[in-house]
Design a protein around this nucleic acid. Structure first.
Lengths: 342, 342
DNA sequence: GCAGTTAATGAATCGCATG
DNA sequence: CCATGCGATTCATTAACTG
């Protein structure tokens, strides 16, 4: 554990013994050695099983866990029945019901502890949550990674239909980022966004340059010839949600836009790096990682998620291999990959 | 206390006895009974002294406490000395150095506990912080007001000169809001912002209206004659910081823009309501409250803050009265206001 | 092809009906 | 009486269609 505040979260029974993680091993289902890997199974066991291979080698972990909404989520598929209205088919995808915030935080905590060991020294972890739990998750994460390792709270601002409520419309999610080692030089590629309208008006696209007088005081700025690449990317990102009828949409609930992952992966990893997504869902992370030339591992418990991701990667022409977690059979040598006959 | 999660913050010594608040009473310094009141003194004592008067009567508390920056802040004043460069004069304004997050949170906690009792049932508390402490403050506030009372995390997105750092630029503050009673109808006036460009393009300014078929399925939307007032205000606000040479600027450090307070006060209180700002600073809350016809009380320990606010309100032609906190003299009857001879 | 129009529906939220 | 569900609300976005 990193250096921690002495301010911690506490709840009844927190200090009790933690349940042992059921030991699993990975069985290859399809594909050969590929830069992109899908693993079907509970991420807790899978992370433990992959620890020997991945320890210290992961540049970026992006986690999009359930948001503690106390709901079940379904995948929507549409079948066009020739005649007029297409039929909507609902398939259960994942269950976000919990017996209390304690159990939610405990579950997330055990994953974060396992993930920390996989990070390379220049790596970072990004947890995608919403403002209903982000604050608790932040305090939890500070305890695991150390408060000095906290690097950014990124606000994803989106637009959606308004709800009638005597409150400000909730239109943002939160991405919390910690670095593996606050003293190491972090993986970070500077990305840029468009200059503010007011800046364009006053300065145009030329770079501004501060001008100092003899005494060291700033006198004014001047416009340079060289065009500015834009402003260095901030921590508030305005990115559209995937339109209900958008091409990108897979029907998997809670799907994240590729534009969001492009920023996360583009800024926080480099080509050839390993990116890890323990809550794979519809496979947006894998899809974007492949597009940007990263290696990646995605995990999900849900066979619906695995199916959606498999089809998505195949449709995009991405080479990938697929594994599944199976309970360790004590009779045979552990850790050995068994070939699965299809 | 409201109903709470069983997830709490804990730190060594937290359960120990809390220091007693030094008892003070208010002494009138200037002005007669006014809708706007300035009180010079430590807000903890002042809140306790004003409790009998304000209990259950405050519609909105806006707090802009120090941000745990571990710095001292100074006021900048410029004196134009006839000749060329104006002289900058620095006056210490407030001290934001703490011996640990625990002491910061303890201090804030005692204020929030006092404030809770002053709120009317439809009232709310808004705490302005930044993402370095917001998460701890949120967990603390949930404990005091109850997690069900948490209403909004508002993100104030501003634009500033970018810093050279291998990280996303920090360009947001956070406003946390709790309501006094989650079951009561809250004070809330719906404010609107401009429609998204894509909406304007597709729909124009007409309201959209859902159209359903016989089976209850939504078929499509149609544009109505009635113009939409815009989209109901969200929880991410893009508001400029006060320009370094802006007319609004008082020179007081950490001054907040009036536009921010216009939204907070406009949405969460009504004309005639009492608005309270225990960390008054340069008096933005009082200034905006006066402009919007609210009654208001501002408190600050710093005589620089009180001076800046006094000049600011006077310059704006706002009638106000001013008090100061003095230790209770046990010899004379307590609670009685003493007239101060200037 | 390109521009303008129409269709479809979503990590929402409240209130009221229904068991 | 409490839990659950569905109707009503109406912005944002892209696909598909039309001229």
């Amino acid at each position: 554990m990193g250096k921690s505040w002495s301010v911690l979260l506490s709840w009844p029974g927190r200090t009790g013994p933690e349940a042992a993680v059921p030991e699993v091993e990975l069985e290859r289902v399809a594909g050969d050695d590929s830069a992109i890997r899908i693993v079907h199974g509970d991420n807790e066991g899978v992370l433990q099983a992959m620890a020997p291979e991945l320890e210290g080698k992961v540049s970026l972990v992006y986690l999009d866990p359930p948001f503690f909404t106390m709901r079940e989520f379904e995948r929507v598929t549409r079948r066009k029945s020739g005649t007029s209205p297409p039929v909507r088919i609902l398939t259960p995808a994942f269950d976000d019901r919990w017996c209390g915030l304690e159990s939610y935080l405990s579950s997330l905590r055990s994953r974060l502890v396992l993930l920390r060991k996989l990070l390379s020294p220049h790596g970072s972890v990004v947890v995608h949550v919403d403002p209903r739990t982000s604050h608790y998750v932040k305090v939890l994460g500070d305890e695991i990674f150390g408060p000095d390792a906290f690097a950014s709270e990124i606000v994803w601002r989106y637009r959606r239909w308004p709800a009638r409520t005597p409150n400000f419309q909730r239109v943002h999610d939160v991405l919390l980022r910690w670095v593996a080692d606050p003293c190491a030089a972090p993986r970070f590629t500077q990305l840029y966004e468009e200059l503010a309208p007011s800046t364009l008006k006053t300065w145009g696209r030329g770079k501004q340059k501060a001008v100092f007088d003899g005494t060291g005081r700033r006198r004014r700025s001047s416009t340079e010839q060289a065009p500015s690449p834009g402003v260095p990317l901030g921590d508030v990102w305005e990115i559209s949600i995937i339109a209900p009828v958008g091409r990108e949409r897979t029907g998997y609930p809670t799907q994240k836009p590729e534009g969001l992952l492009e920023r996360v992966i583009g800024a926080l990893s480099e080509p050839g790096d390993i990116v890890l997504d323990p809550y794979m869902g519809s496979g947006t992370t894998l899809s974007v990682a492949a597009k940007l030339g990263r290696r990646a591992v995605g995990m999900d418990q849900s066979h619906v998620a695995v199916g959606v991701t498999r089809e998505r990667l195949a449709a995009a022409g991405v080479q990938f291999s697929e594994f599944r977690a199976v309970p360790v059979q004590r009779q045979q040598a552990p850790g050995q990959l068994r070939r699965h006959a299809p």
